[in-house]
Amino acid sequence: MKEGTLILVWVYSNLDEVELFLNGKSLGRDRPGKQAQEMQAEWFVPWQAGSIKAVGYRDGKKVLEKVVTTANSPDGLKHTIDTYSAENGFRTAKVITTETVDDKDTFYPYGSHKIYYHFSDGLKLKALENGSPYEHTNRDKSNYRHLFMGKNRAFVEVKYPDAHEFVTIGAIVGDEALRLSNKVAIDVQTIAITNPTNLSSQHVEVLYSINSADKGKMNPYLCLFRSTKGIRCMPK
């Protein structure tokens, strides 16, 4: 993006005021509205690489802040797990959030990669959600879902909390438009949902091919490569 291009930035908040900073310089304060369609504070910001920071105030006092940093091209996935008290007889509910990150673990907000899930037998998928109004993939019967604005969530019921349950999540990750980089990564992670004792036994071998579904022509994935003529490994 060309430096100086005006970008509309919204910050949703239930605080009195929000102040926005671009690379340490204040762009002023705004008051979020009270109506459903007007709860954001907003600024037109001239784009430049770096960071923007939103600081929220109540009764004139700073109560929280949030920083967003410019990301490089995506080359991996980051997963976080939250546990919630379940209803309707479920003992435990887990929410697995997946997002694209760059080589510095910075969130990349434009990822739309297809994310695949494999759950162990003691886990029951309730829904795969990404918040997209255009997503038509079946949310509880499909084993994949695209990221929307870099994020996706899996809602899971844990049927046997004392068992060794896990999920394997995989995707091909990179700058899909090849504007920032032509690096391609295959990210596959097996994550413990309950007891992690036997996690090391869940070995996954990753194979890939270029424009071929013939397993005999597949290669083991060992490192990042570039999407150019031929395949050449490169340091991450």
Rank of each mutant, 00 (worst) to 15 (best):
G174I: 03
I81V: 05
C233G: 14
D105W: 10
Y144M: 09
T69K: 10
L77D: 00
F44P: 00
M39P: 01
I115A: 11
T70S: 06
E19L: 03
G170P: 01
G150M: 11
S51V: 03
W43L: 06
K229F: 11
K141V: 15
V206M: 00
G174R: 05
T168G: 00
Y84W: 11
D102K: 14
L27A: 00
E129D: 05
V173N: 04
L27H: 02
I210K: 12
P74G: 07
L123M: 14
R226L: 11
A54W: 14
Q40P: 03
N195F: 01
N219V: 08
V45S: 00
E65R: 10
G24K: 07
A54T: 15
W10D: 11
S142F: 10
H146N: 13
F166Y: 09
S132W: 12
Q202P: 02
P32A: 03
G131K: 09
D214P: 01
Q48T: 07
K217T: 12
E99I: 15
P74A: 04
S212K: 13
N72S: 11
S120L: 04
N152A: 12
V167I: 00
T137H: 02
K236G: 04
I210L: 13
E65H: 12
V173H: 02
G150H: 12
L199F: 01
V156P: 10
N88H: 13
K114T: 13
T168K: 00
G230P: 04
T228E: 07
P235G: 07
L123Q: 06
S73L: 12
N130C: 07
L15P: 02
S26W: 00
D30Q: 13
L64Y: 10
G170F: 05
E205F: 06
R29G: 02
N211M: 11
T98E: 15
L15V: 02
V45I: 14
E19H: 01
Q189W: 00
D59K: 15
Y108L: 14
Q189M: 01
K217I: 05
Y134C: 06
G76V: 06
T5E: 06
R153Q: 13
N198I: 04
Y108H: 14
L77W: 02
L8W: 03
D121H: 14
G28D: 03
T194L: 09
I7H: 11
H203Y: 08
D82Y: 00
I210V: 14
K126D: 05
G89S: 14
E165R: 00
G230F: 06
K151D: 11
S212Q: 07
I191G: 02
Y84C: 06
L8F: 02
E3N: 08
D121I: 10
T168E: 00
L20D: 10
E42S: 08
E129Y: 04
Y57A: 15
D16S: 07
A49N: 08
D59S: 13
T98D: 15
E129P: 03
M1V: 15
N211S: 12
G122R: 03
L123R: 11
